[in-house]
Design a protein around this nucleic acid. Structure first.
Lengths: 338, 338
DNA sequence: GCAGGCGTTGCACATTTGTGCAATGCCGGT
DNA sequence: ACCGGCATTGCACAAATGTGCAACGCCTGC
C-alpha cells in the first residue's frame, strides 16, 4: 500500500489508481489523448486525481516518447530591451504550441554557452535556440545527432548543420547610409561598441562600404560595451572636437539614445538640425517623445513565428536551412527630410 | 546489441557501457559524484562517452531523486525593464546553484497563471517563483503538498503556505510624499495605471494617506496599462487644465518617463522648476541624461539573493516565511532641492 | 602461504509513465 | 439462447537512470 500522507512528495498514478479502485493503466489512459477508457472509470479517475492533486509526470512521459516538450533558449543580456522583447515573443508563442521554455542565461562568466548546450542535452530538450554567443561546433553536432532542432539567431557566419535565422544587417546598414547621404550629411560617424558581436560588425562593415562607394570615409568609435553608456561616451568624444560630424549611424538604439543625450545635454545641440542620428533595433525607447529616433525595426515577430514553424515542422525537412528577414526603416525625427 | 547509428536519437548509458566494455552500472557511477569507480574504468567510460556524445539524462535521474533541478519562473510583461532585470538577476544566479530556469510567460491570455502552475507540477519543478499574477490558492497548496518551494513576489496580500518576498511599497510611497512636500509642492498628482497590480495600489494608497495626514488631497489618474503611453496620456490630461499640479508621484518609472515627456514636449514645461516628478523602480532609463529621474530603487539583487537562499535552504524550515525589503530613494534631478 | 579486509563490479530492483497483447465482459443480431 | 464483435481492462514490458547487496579479486600483514 502506498503512502497517502499528503505532506511530502508528488502524487503518482499508482496512488490515484488505488483510490479510484482501478488499475494504473486506466489512470494513464485517462490522461492520454485518444486512449480507450469508459466514461465511468474516466470520471472516477479524474475525481481521485483531483482529490489527491495528481499531475502527470512529464519527465517520466518523456522517457518513453522522444518528446520532452522542452525548448532551450540560450542567451545573454536578457535585460536589454531588444533581447527581452525577443524572449517575450518566443516564450509567449511556446505556450501556444504546448512547449515550455528553459532559459539559460549566459551573462555570468561562470555559465558559458558550452555549459548551456550541455544542459540542453541533459534535459533532452526538443530544440535549442541560441540567441547570442558562440557555441562550439562539436557540441552543436552532438545536439543535432541527438535529434534536436538547433536554431541559431543573428549569427552571420552560416553553419551547415543547424537552422539559421538572420536579419539582413548589411542591407539595412547600406540603407542607413543612403538616408543620411540623401539628407546632405557628409561627415558621418559610426558609433559601435567593443563587444564585437557579429551583427554589429556586419552593420559597421556594410555602412563603411556604402560610404566608400560614395567616396566618403567614416570613423568608427567604440567606447565600451553595447549600451547607453557607451553611446554617451562616444558622443562626448566625437562632439568635443572641432570638426564635429554632421551625422551618426549608431549600430544599436541604446547607443543612439546615449549619443543623442550627450549631444543635447552636454553640447546643447539640436537634433536633427545640427546632427542627424540613425539607430538600429527599434526598441521601445526609440519611439519615446524625447528621442523620436529614426531607426530600423527588428523583425522580432517574424523571427518568433519562424521559430514556431520550425518547431512544428516534421523532422524530415531539417538541417542547414537559412532564412533572412529584412529590417525595415522606421522614419521618425532624427534625420532631416530631404 | 543496441543501435550505434549516430543519426537519430540520444545516446544512452547502455550504449556507452557496451563501447567501453563495462556494465551500465559503471557508467552510471562514473557520472555520480562520490560513487566508487576505479580510475581505469572511469577513464574508459569517459572516453567512450565523449566519443558517442553521451550526456546523462536528467529526466530519468529526476525519477529517482526527488530533485529535478528545475525552478519555474512565472510572470507576465517580461519585456518590461523592471521584469526583465528581475528575470536576468534570478536566472543568472540559478546557474550558480546548479538549477535551471523554466520560464512561463503568462502575458498571452491563453496561458493563465493556473495553467502555468500546472506545468510546474507536470515537470516536477523544485520550486515555483511567481513574479506577477494571482495564482489560485488551491493549486498553491497542491504545489506545497507536493514538496515544492513556492515563492510569491510582490504580492501584498500575505498567504500562509508559500514564502512571500515583498517590497515595502507603503514606506517608500510615504517617503515620496514627504520628498515632494518638503520641496514645497502642494498640488500633487498621483499617476498610476488601470492594471490594479497590488504593488501599484499599495503605493497609491500609502501616498494618498500620507497626503491626507498632511492635510492635502491628491488626485489619482489612471490612463491605461502600466507603461510609457499611459504616463504620457496622463500628462496630457493633467497639464492641459488651468490648475496644473506642481508635482507628480508616478507609481512606476515608465509612467514617469511618459509623464515627463508630455510635460516637456507637449507643454514646454521645465522639470523640476515648474514640475517635480518622483518615480518608482529605478529602471535603467531613470538614470539617462534626458530624465535624471528621482525615484526608488527596487532591491532586485536582494530579492534574487533571497530566492537563492531559500532554494538552498533545507526543507525543514519551510513555509509561510515573509521577508520585506526596503526600496531606497535615489536622488537625481526631478525634485527641487529643499 | 593464507586469511582478512577493502575497493570494485555486476545483478537486480527501484523510480513513473505509455502501450501491445490478451482476456474479459457486454451488447446486438439471428 | 447463442455467437460474433467490440469496447474496456489489466498484465507485463519498455524507456534511462541510481543504488543496495553480494560476489569477486587484489593487496597486505602475519
Amino acid at each position: 500500500m502506498s503512502e497517502l500522507k499528503p505532506g511530502r512528495s508528488f502524487v503518482s498514478a499508482q496512488q490515484v489508481a488505488e483510490l479510484a479502485g482501478v488499475s494504473r493503466s486506466a489512470v494513464s489512459r485517462t490522461f492520454t489523448d485518444g486512449a480507450s477508457v469508459s466514461e465511468t472509470t474516466r470520471k472516477r479517475v479524474l475525481e481521485a486525481a483531483d482529490k489527491l492533486g495528481y499531475h502527470v509526470n512529464h519527465l517520466a512521459r518523456s522517457l518513453i516518447h522522444e518528446d520532452s516538450g522542452i525548448v532551450c533558449l540560450i542567451g545573454a543580456d536578457i535585460n536589454t530591451p531588444y533581447h527581452s522583447r525577443l524572449l517575450d515573443a518566443i516564450t509567449r508563442r511556446l505556450q501556444g504550441i504546448n512547449r515550455v521554455a528553459m532559459v539559460i542565461n549566459t551573462s555570468g562568466d561562470s555559465a558559458s554557452v558550452e555549459a548551456a548546450l550541455r544542459q540542453t542535452l541533459n534535459y533532452r530538450a526538443n530544440a535549442t535556440v541560441v540567441l547570442s554567443g558562440t557555441p562550439p561546433a562539436s557540441l552543436i553536432n552532438t545536439c543535432i545527432n541527438s535529434g534536436q532542432h538547433v536554431i541559431l539567431i543573428n549569427r552571420d557566419d552560416h553553419l551547415d548543420g543547424p537552422e539559421n535565422i538572420t536579419v539582413d544587417n548589411a542591407a539595412a546598414a547600406r540603407e542607413a547610409f543612403h538616408m543620411l547621404h540623401r539628407a546632405g550629411c557628409r561627415r558621418i560617424a559610426v558609433v559601435s561598441s567593443q563587444a564585437g558581436t557579429p551583427s554589429l560588425v556586419a552593420r559597421e562593415r556594410a555602412f563603411e562600404a556604402a560610404a566608400g562607394e560614395a567616396g566618403l570615409s567614416v570613423s568608427i568609435t567604440r567606447a565600451g560595451p553595447t549600451g547607453y553608456g557607451a553611446g554617451f561616451e562616444a558622443g562626448r568624444l566625437l562632439l568635443s572636437g572641432s570638426d564635429r560630424p554632421e551625422a551618426a549611424f549608431c549600430v544599436t538604439d541604446l547607443l543612439a539614445c546615449g549619443f543623442m543625450d550627450a549631444a543635447r545635454v552636454e553640447f546643447g545641440m539640436n537634433v536633427p538640425a545640427e546632427l542627424c542620428v540613425v539607430g538600429f533595433d527599434d526598441i521601445e525607447q526609440a519611439g519615446w517623445a524625447s528621442y523620436q529616433l529614426t531607426t530600423f525595426r527588428q523583425p522580432i515577430d517574424q523571427v518568433a513565428d519562424h521559430i514556431t514553424r520550425l518547431l512544428n515542422s516534421d523532422d524530415a525537412a531539417r538541417g542547414g536551412g537559412r532564412v533572412c528577414f529584412h529590417a525595415d526603416p522606421v522614419w521618425r525625427r532624427t534625420v532631416r527630410p530631404k
